[in-house]
Amino acid sequence: MVFEEYEKPAACWAGIDSYKGQERKCLTIILRSGGCTWGSCLMCGYTHVRYGNRDPAFLDRKIRAQISWIKREFNLDDYSLVKIFTSGSFLDPQEVPPDTQQEVIRAFRGKVVILETRPEYVEEERVSILRETADTGMEEIPLYLAMGLETTHDFIREKSIRKGLTTSDFIGGAERAHRAGAGVKTYLLMKPPFLTEQEAIQDMITSAQEAWRWSDLISLNLCTVQSSTPVEWLWRNGAYRPPYLWSVLSVLSALDRPISCDPVGGGTPRGPHNCGACDPELVDGIRTYSLTGDHSLIDALLQVKCGCKEEWRYVLENEMSYSLPLTR
């Protein structure tokens, strides 16, 4: 029986991303999969985005159906950059069966494909095959593996994120990816719980500086309060505050090499926010910086005048591990 099955992915949208200093039309795809095997990170609200069935034949059919839906809804020729997330690890065979992985990549051949995965699923041989599948000779690096390093501080990653991996696990994954000819996109996570504002800033500056050693691209993710997560519980109990946008600017300003940052949920109580008055301008500015890498924009944004800046400065200097968070 040969009829095509269509299923809407968890999410799929078009946008513009910066890649190697130029803006590209980008398709972001969140596939429903077998779900993240780890599923223990404190801030992750995606653990429910999954099929309740991990049978490979079932997953293969369902994921192909999602790709068919995307092909039907979008003209793929318009996009030269494709980011694929599964709310877990695309390379985890229990989430996306190996043959299915290859089938998905084939659909986006000739573009720059970025796959999200935890490093433990990065096998050199498999990645080589996937790279070959993606490659048409059009792109210097046709395949990137996007991995959450989150921070280079093992203690913070363990306590504040519960990520279940170490920096050296990440480095291993990055090396295997590089040996297989894939690029490495590194995700950093700014201000997971249990950190002061100052600790969060320092952590990101240090992490970004160190992470370039193993990364081709770096993206700074800002911690948000997602529903039904431990972080949401902390937030409801006054024990967590997402980062100030001022702090995000401070991190970006301190870095020599531009990194990308999309302030998702910026200006809302659950996302990175200031007082509410200055937020829209700063969120827009950070998005623009992400595309242009224009460092002077960040310095200009840091000069924006707002009454909440004094509060933020006070928090930076006076918030302690035993008195956090000082503000909401």
């Binding site: 913070i156 249990f194 591990s321």
Partner: peptide, 22 residues
């Protein structure tokens, strides 16, 4: 010595396992 408590935060509203560990 209060300055030497970096990264030590353990919130009040948290599970006992977290408290035991951290």
């Amino acid at each position: 010595s209060l300055r030497e408590r970096a990264l030590s935060h353990v919130p009040l509203a948290v599970d006992p396992e977290f408290v035991r560990t951290w």
